[in-house]
Amino acid sequence: MNRLELTGLTTRPAQVWGGVRLVPLVREAPVEGLRLHREVYDGLGAGIVELDHRTQYISYIPHGLVADWSGGGEGPEVPGAGGQSAAYGTQLGGTRDVPHTARLPRLAHHRLAKRRPGNRLRFLPLHLALEGYLALHFGGPSTAWEEWSRGALRGGLSPRAEDTYLGWSVRGLGDALRVFEIHPDQCGVMVYVSDALAAAFVVPHPEDYRLLHASLVEDLYGELVHQYGLYGAPVPEFGARIRDGEHIRTLADLRAAARGQERAWAQAHDGLFARELLDSSYGFDRVYRMGSFTLWRFLPPFVRDGSGQHIGETITDHKGQVAYLKTFRLSDAQIRRGYLLHTLAGADWELSRAAGALGVSREELVRRIRAAGFSELLKGNVGRAPTRLPF
């Protein structure tokens, strides 16, 4: 498995709001045996994630997702269920109504993915993907070459951090999601900002999507997406154009022509708009096995070809079919850092070999390392002109 196979998902015509284009994805049939529920946390969104007994980090965590493969997923899970939080307040309604409960603050999260009683797994959406990117060659130099500092050999790339933007700050996204028409069998969406793919989101069941649709404004987006939303111009809407020469005589002819336009749009979308996501080869890292399903996170090849590249997480069944997907678009600077780290690790962190692989001089490689924000890995005198003595 090295590609994303969106088997069973069909593209529907896009809907546009300003510079935001939303492309719905519908399923022929829901994925059997898996449901996704939302777990709501403290309204402030700040949380502490304990990766292990020594490593923690603080981040924005408004909610988690609970994957349920018990086979009994008939409706939404109660927000915060299975954790150390308490609901207060009472509402009257049917058994299928979503409970609008308020929760007491819940700040600590033990691990990015944690098993819950029964066949359930709580995981933090997008945090799996971002942690995989931040941990990219986190250990630093594997060989004590003389250029690397003692801190680099002892602590590697610690600490590493990336800036992200809340979906509410991406201009037009909140309004687009609010006025978006959800299809009856919709199980996902492709989000474009200024016609650049910002995120892909897929769930196993249409009811899951209806409950999680609005959560896209609470997701994390990269700097490039925020800039496109801020400075980008409105994008053209999708419009079906039926030519006079198609000889429309009956409603059946008109319906067939309209469906032909839908198929043409789907082919154009999959072959042009979403090509950078679907045609890329990824490195997958298995996070957790859930019966016949598996939770993965993935990284792109960091090939500097000018196209957009995405990190993300996915749940697949035993056939490799995507049941859940959430992606994060990397900025050009993040792609350059990933490419640089891959090259250094491939050269066993020897600067001369890495410079040869990049086709640049050793001095230029040192400059790139410093420009990428990794100057603390190098000794202070590496790449600097030697001091001339006065004799």
Rank of each mutant, 00 (worst) to 15 (best):
Y228E: 12
P206R: 02
I61V: 15
E218M: 11
R115N: 09
G174W: 06
R96Y: 06
P62Q: 03
A333T: 05
Q321I: 09
F302T: 05
P117G: 13
A29G: 12
L92Y: 04
T327L: 01
E237M: 11
R275M: 06
D317F: 01
V98H: 14
T90S: 13
T327V: 03
A152S: 14
G83N: 06
H318A: 14
Y339P: 03
R3V: 14
H318D: 10
S281K: 10
P300C: 07
R329I: 03
F298E: 02
G72W: 13
L211I: 10
D348E: 05
L157E: 00
R336D: 13
G72L: 10
Y133M: 13
D52N: 15
S158F: 10
G139D: 14
S280N: 09
R362T: 05
I248S: 09
H110F: 11
I369L: 09
G89A: 07
R243Q: 11
L377M: 15
Y165V: 07
R362Y: 02
V49M: 08
H318Y: 09
Q309A: 08
G283Q: 13
L211M: 09
P105W: 13
W145K: 01
R353D: 07
Y57W: 10
R297L: 00
A258Q: 13
H100F: 13
D244A: 14
P30L: 04
V189H: 02
F374M: 12
V49D: 04
Y165N: 08
R150N: 03
S292V: 13
F123W: 02
G82K: 07
F180E: 06
S375E: 15
H342E: 15
A264H: 14
I248A: 08
Y133I: 07
G167Y: 02
V78R: 02
W168M: 07
Q321K: 15
L22A: 08
M190P: 06
V66G: 00
E223D: 14
V23I: 15
G383V: 00
T343Q: 00
A372Y: 01
I335G: 03
A355Y: 01
R370P: 00
V303G: 08
G306R: 05
P159W: 03
Q56F: 14
S215N: 11
E147W: 00
L124W: 03
Q267H: 09
P141K: 02
Q186S: 01
D195L: 12
S292D: 15
G140A: 03
Y282D: 06
R367I: 02
H226A: 12
A252Y: 07
E364L: 09
T387N: 10
Y57P: 00
L251R: 07
H37F: 05
F302G: 04
V287Q: 12
E28F: 11
W265V: 08
F374W: 13
E376K: 11
V31M: 05
R336F: 10
A46I: 12
N381W: 04
L351N: 06
L224D: 15
D219P: 01
Q321L: 11
R367T: 07
E162Q: 08
G64H: 04
G291E: 14
G83A: 07
L220Y: 05
R289Y: 06
A385P: 06
D68S: 04
P159V: 04
G359K: 04
V235N: 05
H310Q: 04
L378P: 01
Q186H: 01
V287F: 04
W349G: 00
L358G: 03
L36P: 00
